[in-house]
Design a binder for these strands. Structure first.
Lengths: 218, 218
DNA sequence: TAGATTGTTAATCGATTAACAATC
DNA sequence: TAGATTGTTAATCGATTAACAATC
């Protein structure tokens, strides 16, 4: 439902998704005073094969590693952050200031992923005009206009399923090209727009299948 | 970081993850009064190839479809729900009653995915003893004991990154075999435990890479 | 030099797609 | 019967793994 992407140096989608974990670990190692790291250390930490870790690092690291010593941690951090787009901040708006929306607005960790939630929208009159974590909540009918004016390219959808497609259309109309969708519905968008689904139903399905299997075994 | 799984009738992990979307659509069609549906209708709705939709349905549908008419919607719904484990409810506990944790506890939609959050845990004395959406918040040091006593097999982790591994270990000690992890860290678990990461950093990475590319194009 | 570690090229494995036969 | 649609078997494509050469 979201086709794969050919990224720069032959990085697979899955490899890209492993990168944030590597990044986190590398930062911790750097803090501990380490300068160099072999691919095998990452493999051990994340339960991956050494080959995979090595290939992942090789495909992201500009300078490559050195036999015997490994990779320069600082370079790796730099390269991964650049690759993932975490080095410069993108502005985003959020639509749907309910429980989940407020939770996301209040979360401090997005800054290190290069995301800044500028403002929110909601259709409830009660919420419009209020602030959450210092961010203004605007009326939902202003989405397109304000997105365009603020030059925002990322939209976060945390409305109930029923309203998600309409909100999505408005975001796209406002110039948004990347949508982070928490609503449990499939969104239909033009070619140039990417939807990243936080697909909770799918996660739960995987979990409950696993639990079934495990319990069956006992 | 979480290897694929060989499911019953050769259903790929990806196919399983598409199922919740199919399910949603099929239910809507049933409500509209439709009885039968061809695979091509799903393909059109979700922007998939007809072949893929057909194969997905074929691999999940016990009775198979009929040439000319298609698949019986009611049967499909049944088969998919059974496959995904949505038909019988699993109890879960949640650890970390912060913004996100409360949002999940307040969300009404999990019932249709067969998930019931029984109770929560938190390490803050302020929260212990309180209720969120009618669910009790217990002290974090009771996790293992209560999980075992309540026979809970699914744990939801919504604590900050630093505490996630400890919480995870306690859940596993309490008999949990499926963990839904919202903390932005890799969790190390025994073989029989499955971790489903709600990997927000990865989602954001994909989005920001896409936005970069799109903006570069203009 | 020997050994650890990277880098590269080929092999395997799994998922998707294509071609075509079967059926109502 | 003709045509729509499913089901099956083979081909392609992409990601992971394996084997081995290169390098410090």
């Amino acid at each position: 439902m979201n086709a794969g992407d050919k990224n720069g140096r032959g990085l697979s989608v899955q490899a890209v998704q492993r990168m944030p974990y590597y990044l986190d670990f590398l930062k911790k190692q750097l803090e501990k005073g380490a300068k160099l790291i072999p691919a095998s250390a990452l493999a051990a930490e994340f339960n991956l094969s050494e080959i995979q870790a090595r290939k992942d690092l090789a495909s992201v690291c500009k300078n490559g590693g050195r036999p015997r010593t490994g990779f320069v941690i600082e370079d790796l951090i730099n390269d991964i952050e650049t690759l993932l787009g975490f080095r410069d901040t993108s502005n985003a708006v959020l639509v749907g200031a309910g429980h989940l929306g407020q939770a996301l607005m209040s979360y401090g960790g997005f800054a290190s992923y290069g995301l800044n939630i500028l403002a929110a929208f909601d259709s409830s009159e009660k919420k419009v005009g209020s602030q959450v974590n210092g961010k203004q909540v605007f009326a939902a009918d202003k989405i397109s206009e304000l997105c365009r004016r603020m030059n925002v390219h990322i939209g976060i959808i945390t409305v109930p399923a029923g309203g998600a497609q309409i909100v999505c259309d408005q975001l796209v109309a406002g110039g948004v090209v990347g949508i982070w969708n928490f609503a449990p519905v499939y969104l239909s968008v033009p070619e140039h727009v990417m939807v990243q689904n936080e697909n909770m139903a799918a996660s739960l399905a995987m979990l409950s299948k696993h639990v079934q299997k495990q319990m069956g075994r006992v």
